[in-house]
Design a protein around this nucleic acid. Structure first.
Lengths: 274, 274
DNA sequence: CAAATAGTGTCTCTAAGACAATATCAC
DNA sequence: GTGATATTGTCTTAGAGACACTATTTG
C-alpha cells in the first residue's frame, strides 16, 4: 500500500455514511421419530425445524428463527454459528447461505438486513444435546414442518405438541430453480420468517434430490434405508427403494458392519464417500 | 402492534450497536463479436465482463466490479441496479444474488460486507447503449474473460485491447455444486473481486447447463445457433448441434420469421417460452 | 457449382421408473 | 412359519452422446 492510500484511509470515515444493521437467521432442520406404530414396525421420521419463542418485543411471544446481529471481527457464517449456540445451545458445523432479505420495512426496529442460513443437526448430536433456551429466547422448540405446493401457492404448517403455526405464501419468481415468496397469510411467525423458512425448504428439497445434505441428518454410519427415510421426510414423497439405492450407490462406501437385533434381516451400514 | 411494542420501539436505538457498511458488487456479462475471420464466416462470439478502473483509493488504478454502498430505503437488488446505472450507464433488468462476502479484513477502508450479484446485458441493448464511465469510475471497459479449471486451481484471465488482468484461485469447498475460492495470485483486480468473479463464472456455467440465463444474452428473437454460441462462449466447450437443439426445444417457441441475406440457408427465428 | 450454415435421422448406451422376486433376521 | 425389512434382478422407456446425412441460401 503506497502513501497516497494510507493518507486517504486516515481521513476516510465509514461512519459518515448511512449503514444498516446486519443480522443472520438460521433455519435448523433435523429428523424426529414418531411414536412406534405397531409390533416390530420401524418408527416414522418427520422433518423438524427449530424455532424460538421471542421473549422481547418486537413480536414478543411470536415464534422466530434463531439468529442475531453481526458483530465486528466475524463473518456472517461465524455470526450464524455463534447466535445459534447462544440461543439454542446447538453446535452446527455446516452453514449454507440461502438468501438475503433487505426490504427496508421488514423489521419494525428499523433498517435491518438479514442473511438467511440453512443448517442440519444429525440425530446422534440431537441425543447428546439438550436443546434449551439461551439468553434471548424464552423457549426453544422443535416443530414438525409441512410445506405443501398447490401450484401458485405454498402452505407452510409448523406443529409442536401444543402449538400450531401456519402461513400461506405466493411463489413469485423462478430463478434457476429457486423461488421468491410473498407472504399472503401469517399466523404466529415473527418478521418475514415465513419467507425465510419457505426459501429454506425449497433449497433443502432441491439439494436433497441431488443427495446433498441428506447425510448431514445421519450419524457417521447408516443404512441405505436410513438415507431413504431422510429424503422422504424432506420431499414428502415416497421413493421406490430399488431405484433410490441405485442412484445413491456412487455417494456411499460399504462397511463390514451390520445392524443387529432389529427383528428382521440385518442391514449393511454405509459411510458417505469423501 | 400493541402499546408495549410501540413503547419498546420508541426507546430502541439500532445506532447503539455496531453496524457494518453494506455494498453490492455486480458481475455484468455480455457477448462480443470477434473480427470476421473469412469470406462468409460467422464471427466468433466471446464472453465479456464489465469492469471499471478505480479513480480513487483504495486500489486506485486497479480494475473492479461496478458497485457501491447500500442506501436507506432500498433493497440490495435496487442498490445493485442503481450503482450499475450510475457507474456504467447500463440498465439491467434481472439481478441474481450469488453470494455474500463478509471477511472483516476484506476492505482496507474498514468493516464492509459485500453482496455479489450476477447480471447479463443482451446484444441489442449493447448496441443502443454507450457504456461509459459515470461518476466514480475513471474508465469503464469490457474484458474478454477466460476461466480455466485445472483440477484444484482455477486461472482467471481478463483481456481488453491494452490490458491483461489475471488471477489464480484455489477451490476450497464444494457445496451443492457451488464452490468457494481462495485467492492465490492476483494481478490487477481490486479487493477480493477475483473471488467474486470466480463465483459468478461458476454460477453462470452451472445455470447455462440448464439453459437458464442463456436467453438474457440475446434479443427477443434468435436462431437456435445463436443460443448454442452463447452456451459455447460461457462453457468454453463446443457442443454437438443436433443434441443441443433437441435439448433446447422445450424452452423455445417457433416463429414464422427467418433470417435473410446471410450467404447461406436462412435460419428460423425462435422466442423463449413462457 | 462451391462455401457456408440450417436442420434431420438414427444408432448406441446409460439411467430412470416400475415392479417382481429372493434373502435373512427375531420370535 | 410369520412378520418385518433388506437386497437383487429385469423389463421398459426416455434421454444423452456421437455422427452421418440432407436442405437451402448467396456468389
Amino acid at each position: 500500500m503506497n502513501q497516497e492510500e494510507q493518507e486517504f484511509l486516515k481521513k476516510y470515515r465509514l461512519e459518515d455514511y448511512p449503514r444498516p444493521s446486519v443480522t443472520t437467521d438460521i433455519a435448523v432442520f433435523s429428523l424426529h421419530s414418531k411414536i412406534q406404530a405397531g409390533y416390530r414396525r420401524e418408527p416414522d421420521k418427520k422433518l423438524c425445524i427449530l424455532l424460538i419463542k421471542r421473549g422481547n418485543p418486537p413480536f414478543r411471544d411470536c415464534w422466530a428463527l434463531p439468529g442475531g446481529f453481526l458483530q465486528p471481527d466475524e463473518t456472517v457464517e461465524t455470526c450464524a454459528a455463534r447466535e445459534l449456540k447462544e440461543e439454542t445451545c446447538a453446535d452446527v458445523h455446516l452453514l449454507r447461505h440461502i438468501g438475503i432479505f433487505s426490504q427496508p420495512e421488514r423489521d419494525p426496529r428499523g433498517w435491518i438486513v438479514s442473511n438467511a442460513f440453512l443448517s442440519v443437526l444429525n440425530q446422534e448430536n440431537l441425543k447428546n444435546m439438550e436443546i434449551q433456551a439461551g439468553d434471548d429466547a424464552a423457549c426453544v422448540r422443535w416443530f414438525n414442518i409441512a410445506f405443501q405446493d398447490s401450484g401458485q401457492y405454498n402452505i407452510l404448517t409448523l406443529e409442536s405438541e401444543k402449538t400450531t403455526i401456519s402461513a400461506k405464501l405466493k411463489k413469485i419468481r423462478n430463478s434457476f430453480g429457486m423461488y421468491e415468496f410473498e407472504i399472503i397469510e401469517n399466523n404466529g411467525l415473527a418478521f418475514d420468517h415465513a419467507k425465510v423458512i419457505a426459501s429454506a425448504m425449497t433449497y433443502l428439497r432441491q439439494s436433497s434430490e441431488q443427495f446433498d445434505l441428506l447425510f448431514d441428518f445421519l450419524p457417521e454410519q447408516f443404512t441405505l434405508a436410513d438415507v431413504q427415510k431422510v429424503q422422504e421426510a424432506i420431499t414428502g414423497e415416497p421413493a421406490l427403494t430399488a431405484n433410490f439405492r441405485r442412484k445413491l450407490t456412487p455417494y456411499v462406501v460399504e462397511t463390514d458392519t451390520f445392524t443387529k437385533g432389529a427383528g428382521h434381516r440385518p442391514a449393511r451400514l454405509y459411510e458417505r464417500k469423501s
